[in-house]
Amino acid sequence: MTNLLKNRELLLIVIIGLMVIGFSTRAQGFAAPGNLANIFNDTSILIILALGQMTVILTKSIDLSVAANLAFTGMAVALTNAPYPDPPLAALIVMAIGIGAFLGAINGFLVWALQIPPIVVTLGTLTIYRGMAFVLSGGGWVNAHQMTAQFLNIPRTQLLGLPVLSWIAIAIVLGAWFVLTRLPFGRAAYASGGNPTAAVYAGIDIGWTRFIAFVLSGALAGLCGYLWVSRYAVAYVDIAVGFELDTVAACVIGGISIAGGIGSVAGAVLGALFLGVIKNALPVIGISPFAQLAISGIVIVLAVVFNARAERKAGRIILRDRAAPEASA
């Protein structure tokens, strides 16, 4: 199994490498280090969200509310920053993470305490959180000139050759790797998704693990709320509509099993980068940006076909039919 997973990540690196080389034959300078750094920076937010989504998916759940959480939190910090420019930026970032974590905790609580299927919970909170963003803003926009220079500039400040936004993403990738592979929570997350019954017998509190996963995913979505608003220098209700599907897509492409328990941090990051490279390449090689949606659709379907082949375990087959019913939620 580990070999297969290693193959998946290697394979993705090779595919991404080939894509970059292929695109650079059509467009000079696509493979230049500066442009690659740009693509990474452009994909940073997706990488961060995909890591949160991955943590939730590992525990056999799904968080469809991340983009709505991002929109609400982004609106909240923008609305705080506009009339009150004085408080330090750090306070705003803490506030963003706090709000995000709280919204995530609501999801987690409903899944944990009431045992409502995660897909139903987050489908509901998805509409609620985005609706709240509308209530908060009254449908208005917060534009660049209303935000303080510090609020806008920090993520794009260059530090050792990369913008701060990229460094934040790198820090979170390392943090996620540490949490998922070196802390008891990481073990618990893999176990409660891989085999919930065995996890219970091993003394793991599945409900609590899922709760923490949702809080983490929410906190990262909150952070991304600030990053998104700052990067695009505008906050309105519909920011990042549909972005939750991109995060799921990044995970699926990265080899994270939607049935829980399988996946790696490197996979999620590479899955996000794969989408990021395609998104950045389309305009460069002269394909209409309208084609992007269809292309990511094809990629997701192919990735799922691929995952299913990799996850199929010979030992589990009873009769000729695959007996183990995969949880559809």
């Binding site: 599907l245 939607i258 309208f290 992007q292 659709g297 094809i298 990735a303 799922v304 299913a308």
Partner: peptide, 30 residues
Amino acid sequence: LVSVLRLPSIVVTIGTMSLFRGISYIVLGD
């Protein structure tokens, strides 16, 4: 995709959702 290739429907249909609407976008654009 679901019954012949035996794939989980929730991810498959997230993919085909992007695909079907994506084709509309390619045809119609804005």
